[in-house]
Design a protein around this nucleic acid. Structure first.
Lengths: 120, 120
DNA sequence: CTGAATCCAAGAAGATACTG
DNA sequence: CAGTATCTTCTTGGATTCAG
């Protein structure tokens, strides 16, 4: 039962998950990894505009929460791959639902926005 | 078609929507309004912990994007009600999906987290 | 009652330089 | 190649005060 008497506490699973996928690069990373594992450098190129700091930071976060698996090959030079876990795939499907909702309703949102600015 | 070549640009509808529902109080407000219109004061009490500034700020944002309708009754003292639009109800259903995913997968996430800290 | 304005602290994110 | 560390900037959110 979610939200018994119409109050959604601040510290609830939904908030926790939202803070995750709400962070700027998470969706993009999930997106990039959906079709298969990638190396760090490949991710850097695939996720256009991300800095190295944000990339590793986001990956650590995803790893910590069990959405991404880090595979380090003991070679020289170092080779590291990241791949979605089962939970990660599940999450990426959830974000897909959101994306679909977003593209479906975006025209309505934009229309309302221009209506709103017109009134001022 | 979302995301043709595996890149999800920063300025895309999904990001835009995420920035909206990712903001701290949006879900809670949607939640509170789901069962019917509420006045400002009622919202203040329903959304436990919110400040007045964040309440009006969040409402303006929701209004601007067409999720909430502001109904001002020309009375003294002033009486204002907020109610979900059709788009708002649609969005609240989307957040419900997220909430369900969150509660369903939260145990797995927590388990992974404790496993992660154990390794360090 | 409703809500706008201001000031302030904390966190997120970017740029850059450096290590194994 | 992969990752860390530091410094700076910008945004969020909270506390308080004031106005219609």
């Amino acid at each position: 039962m979610l939200d018994s008497d119409n109050t959604c506490n601040t510290d609830c699973p939904p908030r926790d998950v939202l803070d995750l996928i709400g962070s700027k690069w998470v969706i993009m990373i999930l997106c990039c990894l959906k079709s298969g594992p990638l190396r760090t450098g490949e991710l850097m190129r695939a996720a256009t505009g991300i800095s190295q700091k944000m990339l590793t930071q986001t990956l650590r976060d995803l790893e910590y929460n069990g959405f991404v698996e880090r595979i380090s090959h003991p070679e020289v030079p170092p080779r590291v791959e990241y791949r979605l876990t089962g939970l990660g795939h599940s999450l990426s499907e959830l974000t897909l639902v959101m994306q679909q909702w977003a593209v479906a309703n975006y025209p309505a949102i934009l229309a309302q926005r221009s209506r709103a600015v017109g009134q001022n």
